[in-house]
Design a protein around this nucleic acid. Structure first.
Length: 578
RNA sequence: GUCCCCGUAGCUCAGUUGGAUAGAGCGGUGGUUUCCUAAACCGCAGGUCGCGCGUUCGAAUCGCGCCGGGGACACCA
C-alpha cells in the first residue's frame, strides 16, 4: 500500500507546482467508497497554484496532466478530487507480500522503541464487588496495553487497587461492631460491602461513628498489627473474587500494587514538595496551592485530622513509576469524573520536575436508568450496582442457548459459549468512542434474534463468526498457501475491497495506539469483516482452478491473520469454529 | 453559580480532526442457501445533524449565545 502511495505522491509532486512530498502525503486521503478509487487528492488545497480556478476544473486539469506511474491503473477527476485507482495486481501483491513478510507483526509500528509505559487500569476498590462500571476501565486499559506492547513499548499493566484510605477506617470499625467470620466466608465481598453501607448509614445518625472510623484508620496507618491483619484478610478475600472475574475476561496484570503500596513513600513525596516550598496549610489541611496555575482548589496532601489522602499516594506512585520502574509515559485509564483530580495531580508532578508524560485516558460513565426512569451514576451505596460477574455469566448463558442443538460435546460447547459470550460483552464496550457515557442495558448488550438464535449486526460474535468462516476455508484447503501466487487473479471489486481494508491495518493500529482509542480498531475490524463476508458471498474460494484457489486462499489467510491480530489486541478470543 | 463531556434516522452509534450525494447496525419491510459456517449477504422505507447567529469558496465538524442530558467543583476514591 505504502509503495503505491509513494508513487502517487511522486506523480502529484511532479504535476503540482510548489507541492512538497510531505504536504502531498498529508493531503492524500481515501475516497469514501472503494468504487471511487484507492487514493484521493483534494484540489481545493492547491487551488492557489492554479489561478484559484474552481476545484472541479483544477481536478480535471490535473487528472489529464499527471503522468501515471506503473502502479496506478487509472486517474479520474471526480468533483473536486483527483482519484487514483491502484493497479489491482500491484495492490494485491504489495498488500499480501508486506503482510506475509511482517508475519505475526503485521500492522505493528515501532512507536515505543523499547520505552516503558505504565498503564494503570481497572483499579477497583477492595471490599466492594466488581460492578459493571469496572468493565470499561478494565477492557479499555487491557486493549491499550496490548496495542502499546504490539507497537514496541515495554508495558507494565498495573491494577492500582483502592486498598487504602478513610473507607478502611469505617470498614474496620464496622467489623469490630458487626463482623462475622462466618458471614464473611459465606458472602465474601458482598458482606464487606454491606458492612460499609451499614456503617455509612449509622454514621449519618450518630457522629460518634465518624470518630471511631478515624481512630481505626489512624491505627491502620500507624501500622497497628491487629488493624493490619484484618485489612490484609479483607484484601485477600477481595482479590480472590476479583481474580475470578479477570480470569473470565482473560485479563492479566503485571502488578497488583494498589494504594497501600505507596503508604511508605508518601512522606518522601511530601518532603520533596516541601523542599521546593510548594506546601501550605489551608483550613487545617496540608495542601499544594495551585491558584497560580489556574486551579481554584488546592491539591490535598493530608486531611485536617492528619490522615493521608489518595492524591498523595498517586503522587508517590508517579515518583516510583518514573524512578524505580523507569517509565517514560504513564497512562491512567480512569472515568471522566476524575478529570480534575488528574489535572491537579499532573500539575503537581510537573512542579516537582518529574520528567514523564502522564495521560488521563478518560472514558464516559456507565449510567443506570433507575426505577423512576432517570439516568444516574452507579453507586455501590445506592444499591444501583450490577455485578460484572453476573453480566458475564448471562452472556455465556445466552450463547449456550444459541448453540444448544450443535452436535458438540459439553466441553466444546462450554468453550465456545465462553469465548463468544465474553467477546460480545468486551466488544460492546470497545466499539464505542471512549468518551461517551453509556446507559447500561443488558438486553441491548446481548442483543440477539430469538427466531434465528443468533447475534446480529456489529457485534463481537460477528467478528468471531467471520474469523471462524475464514478458518474453515483454510482448514478445507488443508495446506500452507504458496508464497507466491498469480496476483492478477485478485482483481475483482470484492478482492480489492478486502485488500484495501487489510492495507489500512497498520494506519489503524497506529492511530488507535497514539489516540488511546481502541474503538478505532473495533470499527476497522467491522469494516474488514463486512468486505470479507461480501467476498465470501459473491465468490467461491475453493474451486477446480488451482491457481485461482491459491490466490484466493492467500487473501483469505491474510484477512484471517489481520482479523486475528485485531481481536487479540482487543482482548477478544478468536474461535476457529462456532 | 463556574468549568468539563455529550446532543446525527424510531433505537444504539460512525462520520478519517473543515471537504465528494451525512453513513452503519438494530428494529420495520421484501428477497438470497443443490456449493467453502445464513451468527452471513442484498433491496426498500426512514434525516430541520438540538436551536440561532457568525467565520469560510465550503460547517455535522470551528467560534459565540441559547435549550436539553450527564459529570466535576478540598479533607471519599
Amino acid at each position: 500500500m505504502d509503495t503505491i502511495r509513494t508513487d502517487v505522491i511522486g506523480a502529484l509532486v511532479a504535476a503540482v507546482p510548489g507541492l512538497t512530498a510531505e504536504r502531498a502525503r498529508e493531503l492524500l486521503t481515501a475516497p469514501p467508497d472503494s468504487a471511487m478509487g484507492d487514493f484521493a487528492f483534494p484540489t481545493f488545497a492547491v487551488r492557489d497554484r492554479f489561478d484559484n480556478a474552481p476545484p472541479p476544473a483544477v481536478a480535471r486539469q490535473l487528472a489529464a496532466a499527471i503522468r501515471k506511474p506503473a502502479s496506478v491503473a487509472r486517474i479520474e477527476a471526480t468533483g473536486p478530487y483527483v482519484n487514483f485507482f491502484a493497479e489491482p495486481a500491484v495492490l494485491a501483491r504489495t498488500v499480501l507480500e508486506s503482510a506475509r513478510a511482517a508475519g505475526a507483526r503485521w500492522g505493528a509500528t515501532d512507536l515505543g522503541q523499547g520505552r516503558t509505559v505504565v498503564i494503570d487500569f481497572s483499579s477497583p476498590n477492595i471490599a466492594k464487588p466488581l460492578g459493571i462500571a469496572h468493565l470499561r476501565s478494565t477492557v479499555i486499559g487491557n486493549a491499550i496495553r496490548n496495542l502499546h506492547a504490539f507497537c514496541g513499548w515495554k508495558t507494565i499493566g498495573v491494577n492500582h487497587l483502592g486498598d487504602w484510605g478513610t473507607n478502611f477506617g469505617k470498614l474496620l470499625s464496622a467489623w469490630e461492631k458487626w463482623g462475622s467470620e462466618e458471614s464473611l466466608k459465606e458472602r465474601g465481598v458482598e458482606f464487606l460491602k454491606d458492612l460499609l453501607v451499614r456503617f455509612t448509614e449509622a454514621e449519618r445518625a450518630d457522629p460518634a461513628f465518624r470518630q471511631q472510623a478515624r481512630d481505626w484508620f489512624r491505627r491502620l496507618e500507624s501500622g497497628d498489627p491487629e488493624a493490619k491483619k484484618v485489612w490484609q484478610h479483607f484484601r485477600d478475600i477481595s482479590l480472590a473474587e476479583f481474580r475470578r472475574v479477570y480470569s473470565l475476561l482473560g485479563i492479566e496484570f503485571d502488578s497488583w500494587s494498589g494504594e497501600s503500596a505507596y503508604v511508605d513513600r508518601m512522606a518522601g513525596a511530601i518532603a520533596e514538595l516541601e523542599a521546593r516550598g510548594l506546601c501550605s496549610e489551608s483550613q487545617g489541611a496540608y495542601v499544594v496551592d495551585l491558584t497560580a496555575h489556574g486551579f481554584k482548589e488546592p491539591f490535598l496532601l493530608r486531611k485536617a485530622d492528619d490522615a493521608s489522602l489518595y492524591g498523595t499516594r498517586d503522587l508517590a506512585a508517579i515518583l516510583y513509576r518514573r524512578r524505580d520502574l523507569g517509565a517514560r509515559a504513564l497512562v491512567y485509564v480512569v472515568a471522566a469524573d476524575q478529570k480534575l483530580h488528574f489535572r491537579q495531580l499532573f500539575k503537581v508532578a510537573e512542579l516537582l520536575g518529574v520528567d514523564v508524560e502522564p495521560v488521563h485516558v478518560e472514558f464516559g460513565l456507565m449510567r443506570i436508568v433507575n426505577a423512576e426512569g432517570v439516568r444516574e451514576k452507579m453507586a455501590t451505596r445506592k444499591g444501583t450496582i450490577v455485578l460484572l460477574h453476573d453480566v458475564l455469566q448471562a452472556a455465556i448463558e445466552r450463547v449456550h442457548e444459541i448453540i444448544a442443538d450443535r452436535e458438540w460435546d459439553a466441553a466444546r460447547k462450554s468453550r465456545v459459549a465462553h469465548q463468544v459470550g465474553i467477546g460480545a460483552v468486551i466488544f460492546n464496550d470497545l466499539s464505542r468512542t471512549r468518551t461517551r457515557d453509556i446507559d447500561f442495558n443488558l438486553q441491548q448488550m446481548l442483543d440477539f434474534d430469538p427466531e434465528t438464535k443468533a447475534f446480529k449486526g456489529e457485534t463481537g460474535p460477528y467478528l468471531q463468526y467471520t474469523h471462524a468462516r475464514l478458518s474453515s476455508a483454510l482448514r478445507k484447503y488443508g495446506k500452507e498457501p504458496p508464497a507466491s501466487v498469480d496476483f492478477t487473479l485478485l482483481t475483482t471489486d470484492e478482492d480489492r475491497a478486502v485488500l484495501r481494508q487489510i492495507g489500512r491495518f497498520p494506519d489503524i493500529i497506529r492511530d488507535a495506539t497514539t489516540r488511546y482509542e481502541p474503538s478505532l480498531l473495533s470499527r476497522a475490524l467491522i469494516d474488514l469483516c463486512g468486505e470479507v463476508n461480501r467476498f465470501w458471498r459473491n465468490q467461491r474460494i475453493l474451486s477446480d482452478d488451482a491457481a485461482l484457489t491459491d490466490a484466493r486462499i492467500l487473501l483469505v489467510q491474510t484477512a484471517r491473520r489481520t482479523l486475528r491480530t485485531g481481536l487479540d489486541l482487543l482482548g477478544i478470543e478468536a474461535p476457529e469454529e462456532m
